[in-house]
């Protein structure tokens, strides 16, 4: 079987895996953005309890491997509570929390990176604290955050492959399955790699376009 025959035979399975990878990544990232925003607001809150919750959350996410988080949610928590959830649900929860923790730090950093003079200028014009935050600080923080947020998206898309170990037939798992049958490790991993690469590359192009659109220069 030459390369193209192998490709032709593998493509349906790999595509199926890619679809699951994308579903897992996009649903997780949507939740992660919400978690990240809420957690970053907690992290900057005046309330010390909310700040502490954020700090503990981020410390746990950063301090433990994604693989352990996935196993803990899929086997640990479900075992303790005596419930069953699908591998897809467990994977989504693990990836959402994981990316959410990192994104919350990115958002907090972005907001704190806006020049304090911006807040002062807005307040000196009479803008309220709320108007200042939403009209002046957040729009600039978003621009600062874009590269790091896109970076996190890329990481999370690829982290779906780690989550495959709890039994999700996503792209990496599909690759393994094909190799187990064909023993064509070299070619199949190239195919899998290229598929991840194309997704990330398209995302990067989109990000570059958005960045240009909202640039602070003429």
């Amino acid at each position: 079987m030459d390369f193209f025959e192998l490709l032709k035979e593998s493509l349906p399975m790999l595509t199926q895996g890619l679809v699951l990878t994308l579903q897992l990544a996009f649903i997780s990232l949507a939740f992660a953005m919400v978690i990240g925003i809420v957690a970053s607001l907690m992290g900057m809150s005046k309330n010390p309890v909310l700040r502490a919750i954020n700090r503990v959350f981020v410390a746990i996410i950063r301090g433990t491997p994604l693989l352990v988080q996935g196993f803990f949610i899929y086997f640990g928590i479900t075992g303790l509570l005596g419930i069953r959830i699908s591998a897809f649900a467990a994977g989504t929860i693990a990836l959402s929390l994981n990316a959410g923790g990192y994104l919350s730090e990115i958002f907090r950093g972005g907001i704190q990176a806006v020049d304090p003079g911006q807040r002062e200028a807005a307040r000196s014009l009479g803008l309220s604290a709320r108007q200042t935050t939403w009209r002046i600080i957040i729009p600039q923080a978003i621009r600062i955050c874009i590269p790091s947020v896109v970076n996190q998206w890329c990481i999370t898309i690829k982290d779906t492959s780690i989550i495959s170990v709890i039994g999700l037939a996503e792209l990496t798992k599909m690759g393994q399955t094909i190799i187990a049958r064909t023993y064509r490790s070299f070619e199949v991993w190239i195919m899998v790699g290229i598929m991840y690469f194309i997704v990330i590359w398209l995302l990067t192009l989109l990000a570059r376009f958005v960045e240009k659109k909202v640039s602070l220069d003429d």
């Binding site: 020049d115 003079g117 911006q118 002062e120 200028a121 807005a122 000196s124 002046i136 729009p139 600039q140 621009r143 909202v214 602070l216």
Partner: peptide, 11 residues
């Protein structure tokens, strides 16, 4: 108020 570093809103 007018500031030393202008503090115009760059966005």
């Amino acid at each position: 108020m007018v500031f030393q570093h202008f503090n115009l809103f760059p966005h």
